[in-house]
Design a protein around this nucleic acid. Structure first.
Lengths: 207, 207
DNA sequence: GTGTATAGACCGACTAGTCGGTTTGTAAAA
DNA sequence: TTTTACAAACCGACTAGTCGGTCTATACAC
């Protein structure tokens, strides 16, 4: 039985509530009531409601970035890297779906100072994906005529959109979804050689 | 020079502001000031702020649904239909980007009564895409082992995510983006026969 | 061991400001 | 005269944040 600090309880509760009702649909009074603490308890642990929103953003993007970097660094070929990076996101997804929802829905409301910090990390994440794509083109795994930036946006879109419909207790696990998306994306961008490699690595779904 | 009614001016202004600052980042006072009218003008034309939010949602989803249906009905083969449906979305996109942003970011805040109406149309839209995919599998254009529902979500995600990064005056037109996405998706799901058909119809990007 | 000083954690009544919505007023149209 | 279309002052509920104060724990003196 883990003793949860008040700060942790506030964060957890806020995540649940934000996820369900949105940032502006939840008052601090509601949070402290649900977290069984008080206004004082809240402001002792967080500077403001915005600061709490920032914390949620930062926790999420930091983990994504870290896991994605790891995936990039610990794999050899571009194909392996892309696939690993998507699985990294999967990993994050299962534990951070509430964060993601807040991240993409309420980001507009972050005060500028906070927004900058977050955007830097977000850009870094994007750059990583672009890097893999252009690596893959150079390497001969991905077709020369694909656009690095658009392919990146396609991948990010495909993956991120999951937060809108994925349910933990739905019929599909994130593993399954990701392997499916990997299949579609890979088929969409590989060269003949890339296709052979992906086949050999069992990254494609076949009959 | 079209004479714009107060109602239209309010809607246009609200769209701009919501797009930029989010629904809760904009007060009615700000709207009426920017639209050069008054509180009275606003409440004469709209029942409430929520009703305005609903109107934005409804205008958008109705157009999407209509255009998608048309695309479905006026084309023959599943491949042509998918492609046409994505282009339909493109068409909508260029004129309705602000609506889309509001639709996907602020939908949580729609009162339940409104939400139901919107969700019905949204489901209908989704069903249409699912239909085309399963048509395509039956028809032999798309691979048998693909999942209808996940492919649908993949397509919707890919396309919808565009609202997060597309800029009217950016380097790419929505036409270009859509044809690019069509390429990736088609390659991702077609059979050999489907591939041949897509090639013949010049739906794939080749070197 | 016992009393005392101090710091950090937490409480909750209160406030100042905000914002959606209402009411009253008015000029032109019908 | 009545209705429509808007203007502008106003209201009251709500909410983020404050502030004086209490409670608990630990460290240290005696």
């Amino acid at each position: 039985m883990t003793k949860q600090s008040v700060k942790e309880r506030i964060l957890e509760t806020a995540l649940d509530l934000f996820h369900e009702k949105g940032y502006h649909g939840v008052t601090i009074d509601k949070i402290v009531e649900a977290a069984q603490t008080s206004k004082g308890g809240f402001y002792h642990n967080y500077k403001s409601k915005d600061a709490l929103l920032y914390e949620i953003h930062d926790v999420f993007i930091s983990v994504v970035l870290k896991k994605t970097k790891e995936a990039y660094d610990t794999h050899e070929t571009p194909i392996e890297k892309v696939v690993a990076m998507l699985y990294a996101f999967t990993y994050v997804f299962d534990y951070y779906q509430r964060h993601i929802t807040v991240f993409y829905n309420e980001g507009t409301y972050l005060p500028d100072e906070y927004k900058e910090v977050i955007n830097e990390k977000r850009t870094e994440y994007q750059k990583l994906i672009e890097q893999v794509i252009s690596d893959g083109v150079e390497f001969g795994s991905f077709r020369k005529e694909i656009s690095t930036s658009m392919t990146t946006m396609a991948i990010i879109g495909l993956v991120n959109w999951t937060y809108k419909w994925y349910r933990q207790n739905g019929p599909m696990t994130m593993q399954q979804i990701t392997s499916y998306f990997n299949d579609i994306i890979l088929r969409g961008i590989v060269t003949k050689e890339g296709y052979e490699e992906a086949l050999k690595q069992q990254l494609l779904i076949i009959e």
